[in-house]
Design a protein around this nucleic acid. Structure first.
Lengths: 354, 354
DNA sequence: CTGAAAGCGCTTACAG
DNA sequence: CTGAAAGCGCTTACAG
């Protein structure tokens, strides 16, 4: 890995000149340029990005710090940011914080001086958030906060209207005629999970439906916990006719659990997810879900970062993205109470309806 | 963002001393340390990672360059590398090359001087590969090549035995009694796709089964193309009794297409995928698939990188990971030829077997 | 059109 | 135990 100095020596020019031909900055006599280019080719010189950054005070990297890099949602999000970043000439420095606040802080420290912008999704909810941000957010680095409740400050914020999304889901089920609607919540402390839960509560209240504690179970945003949660609901004394899962992964786990129990979706039970990850439309039946514009989220985040870099003193934005309901095959009106599916009640009514 | 110089000034010491207390390197008198720490706290000083890298000639980053950052497979792979990297104190600089060779080269250039190690998965197959690598691979940076055919050189290589994996899949179907086994291939030029195809051919030959061109269709490694490919097969004059898809995403697309056509899996048609992405066990029916140890792949890659950094002159490794078959619900013996499923042949035998 | 020199923010022998 | 100085590999006024 020769340095610029060696190229200069071989071409018999100064390092300043080499820099000029590499970056096409400033005028260079054609024959000088040729000599330098020959030396570069001969030595296989490639500029040292790190040194360049230090000098230019611009790294060309944007940091992406998420609670996790696991799963379809984050995968889509990273991809969305990546596409927009590459288009703008940036690379991504990606870190999962493993949902740990202390680790997030460590990551942010490590990123200082390595990034020109930051996209951060906090691993926790509202508590402590503000003070923590003040302490750990890098100064003078354009930052956009994803789905964080306390959006005031020197950074941009982009949020998904989780409550509205949950309401769309529940309203849809209510319109279909469901009265007993269960929810599989996300992990405690997770901000998105909490909001989706609030939306569920609100929607039930709006529909004048009672809230039954037995119909609310919790999961961890993954398929396995969705399966477990679903099994819990299946043994409830009065089974729900519909289930709203706080994300698609859990909904898909739920689908698997129902299949094991020989319960049909949507005939015996309707199911709604949240996120609209790519596989949602391919499971069986295709999942009705609240569609979050994940790619748009990534694109908008980069856009805000670029704007903040261009105009550091302009006021910051606080965007709220509205999800829409994607109605697919996993929802239908409930089976008429008078003639329930034989499968469904077989266990409870040994004789069954002849 | 105060620099080390300002901390030094405030604490009335030299920058060397500040550096010593920050990095716990070299002895410092307790009261001096206290003064420095107070200054650091007061100023909110965080060391500039970029400058530190330049000085130390160590960045703490490892580059990950993949054909794409999309989809469950790459998502899992990145996660596997991330977990191992973080454990070793490294961060990930991730780039998708969008399956373009020129873009890969650009990415590699941009990474020079920003990484201590590189995990690279080439976007193309065997042709040109060797020369390209010689030109574009960074010198003196430990590198591990993933699933690349030409594994000799100054880098480590880790490969998945795709042919063996494909043989496992086909052998399983043959043992179940299938004779007409179709394949949905991956994109042309993709090395993994080509090898899986070769394994399919080999296995058919070993089982003395004829290779029928009409039973081989191609896809693009995503769900949508799996659906299309499956539809092609469904209208073939003689329908296969089993389908081997070159990856899980296409298998899942295929599952959706079959559902639309009211063909049952595995009763009417058996289906095998490849990769064993997390969702494979949750689709309906659970997908029989060739399980690639994705997380292990990531872990091993980091391990090789660390070893190469520690002993640059030790000989490099060339590991081959053996996939195993995960038999789940999407495969079964074919319907007996004498009494085919009515659904299956309804279109061809209007009368059907009475 | 070109070069000498300072500077980006750190680390680390070397000397004291 | 501490500091002055060189150096990591680049860029960029400034002067010529």
């Amino acid at each position: 890995m020769p340095s610029i100095r060696e190229v200069a020596r071989l071409a018999e020019v100064s390092v300043a000149t080499v820099s000029r031909v590499v970056n096409h900055t400033g005028p260079v006599r054609p024959e000088t340029r040729t000599r330098v280019e020959a030396a570069i080719e001969r030595l296989g010189y490639v500029p040292h990005g790190g040194a360049r950054s230090l000098s230019l005070r611009r790294t060309g990297n944007v940091g992406v710090v998420l609670p996790d890099v696991h799963g379809a949602f984050f995968s889509e999000l990273v991809r969305g940011i990546d596409v927009a970043a590459r288009a703008a000439g940036y690379h991504l420095l990606v870190s999962g914080s493993h949902s740990d606040l202390a680790e997030s802080a460590a990551v942010l420290r490590a990123l200082h001086g390595r990034i020109d912008g930051l996209v951060l999704m906090m691993p926790v909810g509202s508590d402590r958030g503000d003070e923590w941000l003040r302490r750990h957010l890098p100064h003078r680095v354009p930052t956009v906060l994803l789905n964080h409740p306390l959006a005031e400050g020197a950074h941009d914020a982009i949020r998904v209207d989780n409550r509205h999304g949950a309401r769309l889901a529940i309203d849809h089920l209510v319109e279909l005629g469901h009265r007993r609607i269960a929810m599989i919540c996300g992990p405690a402390g997770n901000h998105d999970a909490e909001e989706r839960r609030l939306g569920y509560d609100e929607a039930l209240r709006a529909a004048r439906l009672p809230r039954e504690p037995a119909l609310v179970v919790s999961g961890e945003f993954d398929e396995a916990s969705g399966m477990r949660a679903c099994s819990q609901l299946a043994v409830a004394s009065e089974r729900p006719t519909a289930v709203f899962a706080a994300n698609d992964a859990m909904a898909i786990g739920c689908l698997a659990a129902l299949r094991e129990r020989r319960l049909r979706v949507p005939e015996d039970l309707s199911l709604v997810g949240f996120d609209d990850i790519p596989v949602a439309r391919y499971v069986s039946p295709a999942l009705t879900t609240v569609s979050v514009p994940i790619a748009q989220l990534g694109r908008l985040a980069m856009q805000r970062l670029l704007a903040a870099a261009a105009e550091p003193d302009a006021p910051r934005h606080d965007d709220v993205l509205a999800p829409v309901l994607a109605v697919r095959g996993s929802t239908a009106p409930p089976a008429p109470a008078a003639a329930p599916s034989p499968d469904l009640l077989a266990a409870h009514q040994p004789g069954g309806p002849a």
